[in-house]
Amino acid sequence: MESFDPEILEGLAKHEFLSQAWLEEFDNLTSRLGIEPISVSVPLRMNQLISGTPFGPEPITAHIDTTSGILEIGLGLVDEADLTITIDYETAKAMFVDMDPQRAVEAFLAGRVTVNGDITKLLGLAQVFATRDERVTAILRAITS
C-alpha cells in the first residue's frame, strides 16, 4: 500500500451518509484524491431498503453493484438483484462507514436486519469490506457527518 498523507482529508465536506451529496462525494473521491476505486471480487447486485434516515422519504432505496469489479453505490433499486437487505440507517452506517462488524451481527440477531436472496454473496462482500484499504475507511469517515 502506498503511503497515506492524512492531510488530504482536511477540508473535505461532511454529508449525511447516503444523501445525494454524500454519494456524489464518494463517487468523486477516488479520482480527486488519486486512490484506486474499491475493487471487489464478489459479483453482487444488492438492493437495500434503509429505514430511520435523518432525511428524505422512508425508506431510502439504494443499491450496491459490484458486477463491474468496482464498488458502485447508488440510490434506487437495480433489476435482477441477488438479494435485498432491509436495515436501519444507523446499522447501515456502522457497517459501511465505521466497519463495525459486531454491530452488524447484533442487528442481524435482533431481527433489525433482514436478508431476502443469496446470503452467501452478502457474506462474501462482508469479507471484502473487512480487508479494505484503511485509506478508504479514513476517507469515508472524513466525508460522513
Rank of each mutant, 00 (worst) to 15 (best):
T120W: 05
H15M: 08
L18H: 04
T61V: 08
K121E: 02
M99E: 04
D65S: 00
L109F: 01
P57N: 11
P57D: 13
I38R: 11
L75E: 10
D118Q: 11
E36N: 14
S51Q: 04
E25I: 01
G76W: 11
P43M: 03
K93M: 14
I8Y: 00
G124C: 04
F108V: 00
T131H: 11
I73V: 15
H63P: 01
S51E: 09
A110Y: 02
P54F: 10
L71N: 12
A13C: 05
I60F: 09
D133M: 03
V40Q: 01
E134W: 02
T91V: 15
S51M: 01
H63A: 00
E134I: 07
P37Q: 11
A94H: 00
V136G: 01
Q102H: 09
P57H: 08
L109A: 11
I85R: 11
I35M: 07
G124K: 02
G34Q: 00
N116M: 13
M99H: 08
D5F: 05
G11F: 05
T84E: 03
R45A: 10
L122Q: 12
V78D: 00
Q48H: 08
E58D: 14
E2L: 08
L23G: 00
S145Q: 04
D27S: 13
P43T: 02
E90H: 05
V97W: 10
A138E: 15
M95L: 14
S68T: 15
E2S: 12
A110R: 12
L9I: 11
S68N: 09
V113P: 05
A92T: 02
I38H: 12
S39D: 05
L18E: 02
L33W: 00
L75H: 13
D79M: 10
A110F: 03
E2F: 03
T91F: 05
G76P: 13
R141L: 13
T131I: 09
V136D: 11
L109M: 12
D82L: 06
K93D: 02
I8S: 06
M1A: 15
L71R: 13
R112T: 06
T91Y: 03
